[in-house]
Amino acid sequence: MTTTSAEHQSEPAIVAQGLTRRFGEFTAVDDLALQVPRGQVYGFLGPNGCGKSTTIRMLCGLLTPSAGTVRVLDLDVPRQARALKARIGYMTQTFSLYRDLSVIENLRFVARLYGFDHHRARQRLDTLIAIYRLAELTGQLAGTLSGGQRQRLALAAAVLNEPELLFLDEPTSAVDPQSRRDFWEALFALADAGTTLLVSTHYMDEAERCHRLAILQRGRLMAEGTPQHLKHTLPGVSLLVECATPRRAQQALVGLETVRSCAQIGASLRVLVSDANAEPAIREHLRAAGIDARVATAEANLEDVFVAATHREGQAS
């Protein structure tokens, strides 16, 4: 738009340094450094309680960081949080619209909050109702919507002001697989239109869809990069062990130093080892234990990346 914003166009949507948040003695977010490029879908991957929501709240200016600096859309947060609010959208982890208002009443309310006049609100709501398939539901109370419908309403409300940057905190945790797929289509449509998206999730398949990922564990950034990059740079290798007695094989393997994790998948065993050349040793170990097994190298997936990243932390502490 203006020359100043054009000059800054190269600056990432989000730049955070040393971002820390403590609740009393407890450190929920610990010295986080982040760079979220514009126009991408950026993922926060991590287990419950790792600090995803807390980080997002600080980036939105809702929570004051205990330490660190945050710049979002060229604004200092939380100092310039007010100016930021008009330019971002936030879909909260739990449904935060009014359950005792109808779909249309909720949307009109949000439109007024963003200062839309009657005419502009009508146009915008008509568009959103069409995109997010809410036409049938306008008169229904939000509290009586299904998980997927509620999520579409929440997304419609979050993007009502056409934000440049959209935060989504575990947006798909309460919906069925089909709705999840549809939802991600909607997210990519927004990204195609130039919106930067920051999505937190604990689903690997969702993380896989992101352009870039940050893996969080206990408030710390464990790994960062594109999913491909993360998989290629996996420290170690993933092995697939097929045998008649996978549980026995698991018991035989968990004690080994090189084995980071061992997960049964159907009749086979997925073993993550830190030593990239451990395959013969594993095969030998199983034979010694009297287990007849086929061991092959598997292609690394995000779960391996996640386990490797979070396991390192487990050993460190």
Partner: peptide, 11 residues
């Protein structure tokens, strides 16, 4: 009910 968390992200 979490409504406030949404309200405070609006202007």
């Amino acid at each position: 009910r979490g409504n406030l968390e949404f309200l405070i992200t609006t202007p």
